[in-house]
């Protein structure tokens, strides 16, 4: 088992290298030269060729691409993502707190999402085809088709303005979590609920369930056993949900003025602040790879066959 984990972690290294290289190169795909962006951002009135060359030399942008990449990679490993083109502040000092805020939001939402989808998934699988199952499914179908920002606006209008129960924006206390979390839960619970439900259903039709029942095991315990097996698929999906959510809070953060990654990135995109965008992509891609690995390890740990053989 530990060998498997080591092997699995070893596999991520080349992937991480490729991803970091892609992220780095992205910068150079831009139709606008980064140097010009910097100079623009610094408010330099006329950009001359000498000035460009000078700035390039100063920032080490005249060395070969591969050298630049190595420098950038080594710096990134120390959480040094350079300085913002616009404000000149080190990127990490902006990214770090933003990441933390987004993580808080994502953790609270994912706990709610998983809890809700497991409960609903199990109930609907047991009551397959009854009115409860049908209504939950149609509701989740409608809700997944709903644009998140629209839902957010409606909820904000109703609960924050009309009823004045909750704050419209910002991140001050517990109450300010309610609306953003609600929007994320409504948007994503439907997807995970469907996965749990179909996974439960496919297991409920297995022979072993019939045999357990035929041996007189109570339905509640049979359901627990089935849930445990159905969770094997779900755990994989869930662990990938966290990085996916990290990348999907953009809209919600924007509407509720949440000081997180999304808000930061949108501002960076609008002001062409490349180092921030680069750092954002790198951090999320790495998170994705790590959670992916974690998912595989958990999956292996839950599967007796994998547990024995490695």
């Amino acid at each position: 088992m530990s060998l498997y984990i080591l092997k699995r972690i070893g596999m991520t290294v080349p992937l991480l290298i490729v991803i970091s290289f892609l992220t780095f190169v992205l910068n150079h795909l831009s139709p606008m030269e980064p140097v010009k962006v910097i100079l623009h951002a610094q408010g330099v009135p006329t950009i001359t060729e000498e000035l460009i060359a000078e700035t390039k030399a100063k920032l080490g942008m005249d060395s070969p691409l591969l050298i630049q990449y190595m420098d950038w990679l080594i710096a990134s490993l120390h959480f040094d993502f350079g300085h913002s083109y616009v404000t000149g502040i080190p990127v990490w000092s902006m990214l770090g707190p933003a990441l933390l805020h987004t993580l808080k939001l994502v953790l609270v939402s994912s706990i709610c999402i998983f809890g809700l989808s497991i409960v609903l998934g199990v109930i609907c699988a047991i009551r397959e085809g009854r009115w409860l199952d049908l209504s939950v499914r149609s509701l989740s179908f409608l809700l997944t088709a709903m644009p998140a920002y629209w839902l957010a606006a409606l909820l904000a209008w109703y609960f924050a303005v009309k009823l004045d129960w909750l704050p419209t924006s910002g991140m001050s206390d517990g109450a300010s979590y309610v609306l953003p979390v609600a929007v994320l839960v409504i948007g994503y619970a439907g997807l995970y609920f469907r996965i749990i439900r179909s996974s439960m259903l496919s297991h409920l039709n297995e022979d072993y369930v019939l045999y357990e029942r035929a041996c007189g095991i109570p339905e509640s315990i049979v359901t627990l056993h089935v849930l445990r097996n159905a969770m094997q698929v779900a755990i994989t999906v869930f662990s990938l949900a966290i990085p996916t959510l990290l990348g999907s809070t953009v809209v919600v953060e924007n509407i509720f003025a949440w000081p997180g990654l999304g808000t930061m990135t949108i501002n960076a995109i609008l002001s062409r602040d490349f180092p921030i965008i680069q750092a954002y992509v790198l951090v999320l891609a790495v998170a994705f790879v790590l959670f992916n690995t974690l998912a595989d390890v958990i999956h292996a740990a839950m599967n007796p066959r994998m547990r024995r053989e490695h």
Partner: peptide, 16 residues
């Protein structure tokens, strides 16, 4: 293996 939303943002961020 890349999360879709992030990649879209990355491309839009770079190309404008």
């Amino acid at each position: 293996s890349f999360p879709g939303y992030v990649m879209t943002l990355a491309v839009v961020g770079m190309l404008g």
